Simulated assay, not measured.
Amino acid sequence: MVEQSNWMRQVEADPGHSHWYVERFRAMARAGDDLAGEARLVDAMAPRGAHILDAGCGPGRLGGYLAACGHRVVGVDVDPTLIEAAEQDHPGPRWLVGDLAELDLPAHGIIEPFDIIVSAGNVMTFLAPSTRVPVLTRLLAHLKEDGRAVIGFGAGRDYEFSEFLADAAHAGFATDLLLSAWDVRPFTEDSEFLVALLRPS
């Protein structure tokens, strides 16, 4: 049995947490905040009409933007409340409830591997530690041979950047580029954020 994610533990402790999270981003969107920085980087990397997996998609802001750019998007999240919000706010992509540690999209009829897999919003830090390598392994299994994964999260969340990069290598990824922000700033030893561009090794 897969260990429960830190996110779902939070939801269990506070049943209103998911609704708060959804409303937070809806309020930011209404205020005109820029919520598409991650998606713009992914769009710049992707061929037109790319097949993109939004892994840990939350309420769908990235996948929705990428679908509006003409990409074929599948979003997966463990939280049904977030998937429901994604379906309401961002029609177009295919949204699925699922645990990334057990990701098996061919079982949902999605056979084609992905050009790009994106995991933003600190998703990696919400995973149970025992599932980090299995999640990375499952992501790699859904990626094209020449595809790339883009994974970003902040420091101070009980997952050291060096540990993540070691886990990614263990799962079969090679590192193409490390950035310290989604706006393509270079990564340094004292960076407070990591955006890792990975490919199959």
Rank of each mutant, 00 (worst) to 15 (best):
R40K: 12
S5E: 14
C57K: 01
R40S: 07
D43C: 01
Q10R: 14
I83K: 06
V150E: 09
A86E: 12
P106N: 07
F193D: 08
A36N: 13
G154F: 07
R199A: 04
V78R: 03
R61D: 13
A166Y: 04
G37T: 14
E23A: 11
E112H: 13
E189L: 13
G60Q: 03
E192I: 13
A169C: 10
A120C: 04
G58I: 13
L177C: 12
V42C: 06
L35D: 08
P200K: 02
A141R: 05
Y21F: 15
Q88C: 11
A171F: 12
G152R: 06
L197Y: 05
A101L: 12
A85D: 15
A155R: 05
E163I: 10
P113W: 13
D99L: 08
E192K: 10
D167C: 02
A85G: 11
D34H: 02
I151F: 06
V76H: 14
A169W: 11
E87A: 00
Q10K: 14
S119N: 03
G60W: 09
P129I: 01
H108P: 05
V135W: 08
L105D: 10
G49C: 04
E3P: 13
D79W: 14
A29Y: 10
D146K: 01
G92H: 07
A55W: 14
E12H: 03
I117D: 07
F161N: 01
R185N: 12
P106V: 09
L139V: 02
R148H: 10
E112M: 10
H17W: 15
I52V: 15
V11D: 09
R61K: 06
F153W: 11
D190Y: 10
H90D: 05
D34W: 05
L136E: 06
H19D: 15
I117T: 09
R26G: 02
K144P: 03
H170I: 03
P15G: 02
